[in-house]
Amino acid sequence: MLNAIMLTGLRLAAAAPKGDHGGEHAGDKAFPPFDPTYFPSQIFWLLVSFFALYFILGQVLLPRIGETIEERNNRIADDLDSASRMQREAEDAEKTYERALADAKAKARNHAETTRQSIDAELAKELEIADTQALKQAEAADIRIRKIRTEAMANIDNIAAEAAQATVETLIGKKITLAAVKKVMG
């Protein structure tokens, strides 16, 4: 199918020029891509234009593009470097901070402990002082109580003697001396 179309096309195309301008330049027309008439011209202009291109690209344009790419790559490498350096610095800073924090915590704990101990000691001392004072006061109070009691006991004897004297006087109507009563009471 495809071949048939191509063949027909070829025949049509080949037939066309013959029918149209048959005798004008028949026969002497070489196959253009192989026609040596223009070989020198083509070689010459190809070399001229190609080496012009080679020179312009090699001297001006390609170094420009290459430098731009190089610059960008350097810039990216630099940025990556500084980024990793900054990260390292940040990590160091964090480590230092954590160490300082731990130190501070330990210090605070120590301080609290010593303060508690000293307060405890002071408290114990004060309690002791208060205890001894209380004991002294209790002893003094005891002595006073004993004294008052003996005094009171002495008074009870006198009162009893007087009561006995008064009772005797009422009973026998005779007054007896206190000394006699006391003698009897023993």
């Binding site: 020198p40 011209s41 202009w45 312009i56």
Partner: peptide, 20 residues
């Protein structure tokens, strides 16, 4: 040598100019 500037030479120059 016939070094005439032809339509072929023109296209070579056009290509160089376009690239530049």
């Amino acid at each position: 040598f016939d070094l005439s500037f032809t339509n072929s030479s023109l296209m070579m120059v056009v290509a160089v100019v376009c690239i530049c």
